[in-house]
C-alpha cells in the first residue's frame, strides 16, 4: 500500500476513536436538551466523574479480587461507573434543575455552571489535584497492516459505542419510556395531558445521559491511561459542539456530529496544524450552522405562531 494512503487510514482510525467518545457524551447533551431545552454544562463533569469512578473500581477490584480476565473487569468497571454516574445525574437533576423547572431557561443554565464548578473542585479535593494514572486493564494487543495499527482497546471503544448507540436508538423508538421522551420533546403540554409523568421521564433522561457519559469516561480513562479532574471541560465543550453540529435534540445527529468532529479534528491535526485544528473545527461548525441553522440532522421546527 502506498505510504500516503496508509497515513490517511491511520489518521482516520485516530479520528474515529476520538469521535466515538465525543458521540457518547454528545448523546447526553442532546437528550437533556430534547426534553427540557437546557444546555447542561455539568454534563462534561459527569463524564469526568465517570472516568474517576472507573479508576476507583479498578482500585477496589485490585484490592478485593486479584487478577481477572480483562472482559470481566471491564464489565465490572462499566457497571460500577454507570451506576455511580446515573445516581449522580439523578441527584443533580433533583437538586439543581427540578426546583427551577418553571423559571427562565437561563436560570438552570447558571446552576449547571455552578454544579460544574462544584463537581470539578470536589473531585480535585477527593482525588488530589495531580493527574492520576489508570492501570491498563485491557491488554495492549494490536493488529498491524503495513504501518497501520489498530489496537484491542480501540476495538473495545468501537464495539461498546456502536452497541450503545444501537441500544439507545431502539430504546427511544420502541419502549414506552422512549416514546414518552420523544413526546415530551415534541410538545410538553400535550405530553402531560396524555398522562405522561413529566418528572419521571426527565429523571430517566438524566439517568440515561449520565450513564452514557460515564461509559465514555470509562473508555476515555482506559484508552489514555490517565485521568485529570479538568478533563470534563474540554471533552464537554467538544461534545456539546458535536451535539449542535449534528442538530441538537436529535439522537442520530449527536452520533454523527461526534464521529464527524473526531474525524475532522484528527485529519486537521494530522494534515494541517495541531495548534489550529480547533479553529478549523469551530469554523466548520459556524459554516454548517449558517447554511443549515438546525445542524446536520436537526429538524427544522417552524417557529411558533
Amino acid at each position: 500500500m502506498n505510504a500516503a494512503l496508509e497515513l490517511f487510514i491511520q489518521q482516520l482510525i485516530n479520528g474515529l476513536t476520538l469521535g466515538m467518545v465525543y458521540a457518547l457524551i454528545a448523546l447526553g447533551y442532546t437528550m437533556v436538551y430534547g426534553v427540557i431545552q437546557l444546555i447542561n454544562f455539568a454534563h462534561g463533569e459527569v463524564f469526568m466523574v465517570g472516568a474517576y469512578l472507573a479508576l476507583t473500581a479498578i482500585w477496589i477490584l485490585a484490592a478485593l479480587a486479584g487478577p481477572l480476565p480483562f472482559w470481566v473487569s471491564f464489565a465490572a468497571l462499566l457497571v460500577f461507573s454507570m451506576a455511580g454516574s446515573a445516581l449522580l445525574g439523578a441527584t443533580i437533576e433533583k437538586v439543581a434543575y427540578k426546583p427551577l423547572r418553571n423559571s427562565p431557561r437561563l436560570t438552570a443554565l447558571i446552576t449547571s455552571i455552578g454544579v460544574s464548578f462544584f463537581l470539578q473542585n470536589a473531585v480535585m479535593l477527593i482525588y488530589r489535584s495531580k493527574e492520576q494514572s489508570v492501570p491498563e486493564i485491557i491488554p495492549h494487543v494490536q493488529v498491524s497492516l503495513g504501518r497501520i495499527s489498530f489496537s484491542l482497546i480501540q476495538g473495545v471503544i468501537f464495539l461498546t459505542s456502536i452497541g450503545l448507540m444501537i441500544f439507545l436508538t431502539w430504546f427511544v423508538k420502541n419502549t414506552k419510556l422512549g416514546k414518552a421522551m420523544r413526546a415530551l420533546a415534541e410538545d410538553p403540554e400535550a405530553a402531560c395531558l396524555m398522562g405522561i409523568s413529566v418528572d419521571r421521564v426527565i429523571r430517566v433522561t438524566f439517568i440515561l445521559g449520565s450513564a452514557l457519559a460515564s461509559v465514555a469516561g470509562v473508555l476515555f480513562a482506559l484508552y489514555y491511561g490517565s485521568v485529570n479532574f479538568h478533563d470534563g471541560y474540554l471533552a464537554g465543550l467538544k461534545a456539546f459542539t458535536a451535539a449542535v453540529f449534528g442538530g441538537i435534540g436529535s439522537i442520530p445527529g449527536a452520533m454523527l456530529g461526534g464521529v464527524l468532529l473526531g474525524v475532522f479534528e484528527g485529519l486537521g491535526a494530522g494534515y494541517i496544524s495541531s495548534q489550529w485544528k480547533d479553529v478549523f473545527a469551530f469554523l466548520l461548525l459556524v459554516a454548517v450552522l449558517i447554511s443549515k441553522p438546525s445542524g446536520l440532522l436537526g429538524e427544522n421546527i417552524p417557529e411558533k405562531v
Binding site: Y33, F240, Q275, W276, F282, I290, P293, E303
Partner: peptide, 28 residues
Amino acid sequence: MPSIRVRGDYLAITTLGFGEIVRIAFNN
C-alpha cells in the same frame, strides 16, 4: 451578520465557537 439568522441556542454555539477561535488565534 451571519449568525443572528440562526435562532436561540444555535447562536449560543456560533458565538462560543467565535470566542474560542479568537482566543486560539491570539495564542497562535
